[in-house]
Amino acid sequence: MPRTARIPVLILTGYLGAGKTTVLNRFLAASGAPIGVIINDFGDVNVDAALVAGQVDEPVSVAGGCLCCISDPAQLDQAFKKLTRPDLRLDAIVIEGSGVAEPPALLRLVMDSRVPQVRFGGLIEVVDAAHVPQAEAAGWDLEQHVRAAAVVLLTKTDVVTDPGSRKALEARIHRANPHAMIIEAPHGVFDPALFVDAGESEEFDFGQLALWNPGETPGESHSEHGHPHHHVHHQSVTVEHDGAVDPVALSEFALDPPESVYRVKALVDVSTSSGPQRFAVHSVAGYVTVEAMTRGQEEPLASSLVAIGLELDRADLHARLASVCLPTTAPPASAAQLRRLTRFRT
Score class of each variant (00 low, 15 high):
199 G>W: 06
71 S>F: 01
51 L>G: 03
12 L>Y: 03
54 G>I: 00
234 H>V: 08
258 P>A: 07
229 H>I: 15
264 V>H: 06
118 V>S: 00
91 D>R: 06
251 S>C: 04
223 S>A: 10
7 I>D: 14
221 S>C: 10
149 A>L: 12
283 S>G: 12
62 V>N: 11
34 P>C: 06
290 V>N: 08
68 C>I: 05
317 L>S: 00
62 V>A: 15
79 A>T: 11
85 R>T: 05
333 A>P: 11
283 S>E: 02
289 T>F: 01
331 P>C: 10
59 P>Q: 14
106 L>K: 08
66 C>N: 15
168 A>M: 06
145 H>L: 04
78 Q>I: 00
160 V>E: 03
169 L>Y: 12
166 R>Y: 10
57 D>G: 02
48 D>G: 04
244 A>M: 02
151 V>K: 00
306 V>N: 07
82 K>A: 09
160 V>R: 12
93 I>C: 02
126 V>A: 05
36 G>V: 08
53 A>F: 11
212 W>D: 14
33 A>P: 00
39 I>Q: 14
229 H>G: 04
67 L>F: 01
225 H>I: 12
74 A>L: 12
78 Q>M: 06
329 T>W: 07
303 S>F: 11
213 N>P: 00
250 L>M: 09
318 H>T: 03
311 E>R: 14
336 A>W: 00
320 R>H: 13
180 A>C: 04
224 E>M: 00
141 D>L: 10
81 K>A: 12
30 A>L: 09
138 A>H: 01
128 D>Q: 09
97 G>C: 07
109 L>I: 05
205 D>Q: 10
257 P>E: 12
235 Q>T: 04
62 V>E: 09
318 H>F: 11
71 S>G: 15
220 E>V: 04
155 T>V: 15
86 P>V: 11
287 Y>E: 06
101 A>F: 00
89 R>P: 01
9 V>R: 08
255 L>R: 07
306 V>G: 01
290 V>F: 00
28 L>N: 01
21 T>E: 12
15 Y>P: 14
119 R>S: 09
81 K>G: 10
15 Y>G: 05
12 L>W: 06
155 T>Q: 05
69 C>N: 12
44 D>K: 15
269 D>L: 10
50 A>K: 13
202 E>Q: 11
17 G>Y: 02
307 A>E: 10
165 S>C: 09
230 H>S: 13
153 L>A: 09
325 C>G: 04
308 I>W: 11
258 P>S: 00
80 F>A: 04
178 P>D: 05
108 R>H: 12
85 R>W: 09
330 A>K: 04
263 R>N: 04
104 P>T: 14
332 P>M: 02
315 A>Y: 10
312 L>S: 03
214 P>G: 06
221 S>H: 04
160 V>T: 02
296 G>D: 14
108 R>Y: 03
248 V>N: 05
77 D>G: 08
106 L>T: 02
168 A>N: 11
166 R>W: 09
20 K>I: 00
309 G>V: 01
313 D>Q: 15
